[in-house]
């Protein structure tokens, strides 16, 4: 883990040693499965698909899922539609802010292969190159049932330990980082921040 080149990434988001709970690991695994908090970050056209889940008909709260505005507390990150580079920058920053056992759920076909916007200049064709995806739900905006199924899938993967998107992000950070820098150019965080300074 430590031979990786130091990219001067954001506050050692990668370089901390992981906390291994020996005794309570199975309990925590169960708890992680039974209480998933979703980051309120709805991109693209899928954002409107998410509220029905909270209504009386589907009610994802019975699985312990609760929308939570702050990324620090959240575990589940829903990418609900096409991803433009501008949104991808925010996604990367929010993803890196989330605390570690975090999972990514990609809705719809756009994050998988660009979907309807397959030939558009401004859509990220394959999200997986920049952010590790745990479960992808096909469909050009999957219906709530499909999303619920995807959530069940995530919970199963957590149960079995396969939902290791955050581990993959840590291990081959160079790959993800190179792709990101290729897309946005080196040191894109400062440049982006400076652009908005004038308006604040």
């Amino acid at each position: 883990m430590d031979e990786r080149k130091d990219f001067g990434e954001n506050d050692g988001v990668i370089h901390y040693e992981l906390q291994e709970f020996k005794l309570f690991e199975p309990l925590f695994k169960w708890a992680r499965k039974k209480s998933l908090w979703i980051v309120a970050f709805c991109t693209g056209c899928g954002g409107i698909e998410m509220p029905p889940l909270a209504t009386a008909r589907y009610d994802f709260e019975r699985f312990g899922i609760m929308p939570n505005p702050a990324p620090r507390m959240a575990d589940l990150f829903l990418i609900t539609g096409y991803v433009t580079p501008k949104t991808l920058k925010r996604i990367i920053i929010t993803y890196e802010m989330m605390q570690d056992p975090k999972y990514l759920l990609a809705h719809g076909s756009c994050p998988i292969n660009g979907g309807v916007y397959w030939d558009s200049y401004n859509v990220v064709k394959q999200l997986d190159k920049y952010i590790p995806i745990d479960v992808a739900i096909a469909g050009c905006m999957p219906r709530p049932e499909a999303v619920m199924d995807g959530i069940m899938e995530i919970m199963r993967k957590i149960e079995t330990g396969e939902a290791d998107g955050w581990k993959r992000y840590r291990e081959n950070y160079e790959y993800y980082r190179r792709n990101q820098d290729k897309l946005f150019g080196e040191g894109w965080r400062e440049k982006e921040a400076k652009r908005w300074l004038a308006w604040i």
């Binding site: 702050a70 920058k89 929010t94 982006e192 921040a193 300074l197 604040i200």
Partner: peptide, 11 residues
């Protein structure tokens, strides 16, 4: 967390 926007010292 500034709703995802990058933040520098000048902010």
């Amino acid at each position: 967390y500034q709703s995802g926007n990058p933040v520098t010292e000048e902010y």
